[in-house]
Design a protein around this nucleic acid. Structure first.
Lengths: 189, 189
DNA sequence: TTATTCCTGTACCGATCGGTAAAATTTTTA
DNA sequence: TAAAAATTTTACCGATCGGTACAGGAATAA
């Protein structure tokens, strides 16, 4: 019994990497079998809903990780610490631009329509959490909201450009720019 | 003779929309047939290299359109005019965030490796052209380069967020922010 | 008008697609 | 240890995949 849960959970990060690499449409069941080391039967045993359930589980897991590691600290830790922690965690998670954001990637093609609520929720939660941190740091609500959105935009755009140019430089530069821009919240304009 | 060229060219925008909607992997030949109104025979007659040649032709056509409409004006027109023209053209082309950037989308999954030079070329040319305009407007080379890169990052990220949140608002806000940020080039800091 | 070239529709290929069924095996529970 | 449940293997399904072959129709050139 414990084994089922443990192994289903263990499959999720492997599925995530496969979806990252091939996209939702490009990730065929046979590829997902190879990546997870599970046969078709096992995979469908864990995810009776097939590929769609696998992707949903992956998105849920990503969202959960971000909620615990990034969103929640943004709402509770001292703002400067939380924001800088977010930037470090994001740079680490996305491997300085070499690893893509699954949520962002899903948003860019027809896959979006299948998972619209999950994609919306991920960015909405992030946006809200960051805006709260910036408000706590002293930014007026409107500025906090717009700086928060701008930050998410910059992160996602940096991932696109780092991938397209096959270089960590755009991502690294963007992250430092984000750090500077957000620091006005506690250092004043 | 003239008919062949004309119809092959006419197929490209239709193929482009199909690739935008389904992604490269999700765009099956039968879907591409439906969208273009061409049978398999005709499609393979125009693009003997199959789907890969179709996507390459689409990317080339996109690149060509941007070169003429955006990159070239950036290098020749008066800077302020060129930059504002770029922003307007981009907002129009991407339908205020409802239409994705094919190049950006291709960069985010395994499709990138097939078309790496095209993706790199598109962003590199854009980046250079914008940096040149900003330098001509009076920005020091280093600032021009970083402001140019930041602009492309913001545009791509805005497309991701507008799609994910299913709203034009993030894109519109980002474009106005870009307009403001770049105006320091000719208005001074 | 004839010959040639260009274009299209149809049928077909093997491979792979997502998904199912059930037997066989392992693991857990009693 | 025996029964029950969880898990994996294997074979298989119809549909669709990307791609090819080719015959016939349509336009163009001679």
């Amino acid at each position: 019994m414990a084994r089922l849960v443990a192994e289903r959970a263990d499959a999720i990060p492997l599925l995530a990497e496969a979806f990252r690499e091939f996209g939702f449409e490009g990730a065929s069941i046979s590829r997902l079998c190879k990546r997870t080391g599970l046969g078709k039967g096992s995979l469908y045993h864990f995810f009776p809903g097939g590929k769609e359930e696998m992707a949903a589980a992956v998105l849920e897991s990503v969202q959960h990780w971000f909620a615990g590691t990034i969103f929640q600290p943004l709402e509770t830790l001292p703002p400067a610490e939380a924001v800088n922690g977010m930037i470090d965690a994001v740079a680490d998670y996305f491997q300085s631009g070499r690893r893509i954001c699954l949520v962002g990637a899903f948003a860019l093609d027809g896959t979006r329509d299948r998972f619209a609520p999950a994609l919306n929720g991920y960015f909405t939660q992030w946006h809200k959490a960051l805006a709260i941190a910036l408000q706590r740091a002293g930014l007026p609500p409107a500025e906090a909201e717009s700086a928060s959105l701008d930050t998410l935009v910059t992160i996602q755009g940096a991932l696109v450009l780092s991938r397209a140019l096959d270089s960590e430089q755009p991502f690294r530069a963007a992250m430092e720019q984000v750090r500077q821009r957000l620091s006005v919240a506690w250092r004043g304009p």
